[in-house]
Structure formats: C-alpha cells, structure tokens
C-alpha cells in the first residue's frame, strides 16, 4: 500500500481548515493503487488536492466538471436519473469520480493495474465517512469564513 501517500501535502489552498482534508488523504492511503486525489466543488473549483500540483488540480477539476456535465446529459438522454459514479479507464491510469459530501465530488487517480472493486469500496466508504466535513459551502457562506 502507498505509505508515501499520507505525507503528500495539499496543493490547493482553501480558506477553511486545511487539516480536515488531510484526514481524508490519510484514510485513503490504503486504497489500492491510489496516486492522487482531488476534492472539488460541484461548481468547478478544487478544494483540496494531493499527489498533483495546483495547476494539474485545476485542470483535473475543470475536466471533471466537463465530464459531470456530459454524463448528466447522458443520464437525461437515456433516462438514467442521477449520475452515481464515473470511471475513466486508461492504459496506465484509472480515474474514479464519485460524490463526496454536499456539493462536492472526489476524483481519485488510480494505477490501472489496481483492483478497481477494492478501490471503489475504499473510496466510497471513506468519502461517506467524511462526507459531512468535506462538503462545499455555498459561496456566500464560505466568503464570511
């Protein structure tokens, strides 16, 4: 398992208490093959990122937003209701996107050789445990903090 992962710093500065995102990172370190994670708000801003630098985090966030919008369209087209998870499987990496707290989403970059079932189990489980603390505040509230 990736012991190095829990020493990676958060590359995105957020106004709120940054240490709470470290908890998510620490608990996700046992996810098989995890290489990076980006916590993003549903309106397309990165909240916390580990394993990627800030520019990459911004790009991943932007692309996740685009994909979320695309998949939502897809759901509408096939009458699929809400989108639960998105997996993008590539030659070397797999990206898993899932809900994580109110108005937030979690994108995890995995090594493609890893067992996706186990990884999904971990990611969903952890995202659910920390969901209450990882949500995105509405901007008008976040501004006052």
């Amino acid at each position: 398992m990736n012991q190095l992962f829990n020493t990676l710093p958060n590359t995105v500065t957020t106004t709120a208490d940054p240490t709470r995102y470290d908890l998510l990172r620490n608990s996700l370190q046992h996810t098989p093959g995890i290489e990076a994670l980006v916590l993003l708000s549903n309106d397309g801003l990165p909240i916390a990122a580990y394993g990627v630098d800030e520019a990459e985090a911004q790009r991943i966030t932007a692309m996740c937003s685009g994909m979320a919008s695309l998949t939502a369209q897809m759901a509408g087209a096939v009458d699929g209701a809400g989108v639960l998870h998105t997996l993008v499987t590539m030659e070397r990496r797999t990206v898993v996107m899932s809900a994580c707290g109110p108005d937030s989403a979690l994108a995890c970059v995995l090594d493609s050789r890893a067992h996706v079932g186990l990884a999904m189990r971990e990611i969903v489980d952890r995202a659910r445990s920390f969901a209450d603390h990882l949500g995105t505040l509405p901007r008008f509230q976040a501004a006052s903090h």
Binding site: N42, D43, A68, S69, A72, A75, G76, A81, G82, V83, L84, H85, T86, M97, S98, A99, D103, S104, A105, G117, L118, M120, R121, E122, V124, D125, R128, A131
Partner: peptide, 15 residues
C-alpha cells in the same frame, strides 16, 4: 443535476 448523486447502496455492494 449538477455533480454526482449520492449512491445509496453500501460500499460493499458498490465494490
């Protein structure tokens, strides 16, 4: 509709 819907199934089931 923006963003992901929370999956109501257990982590085990999803896994």
């Amino acid at each position: 509709q923006l963003g992901f819907t929370v999956d109501q199934r257990s982590a085990e089931q999803i896994g």
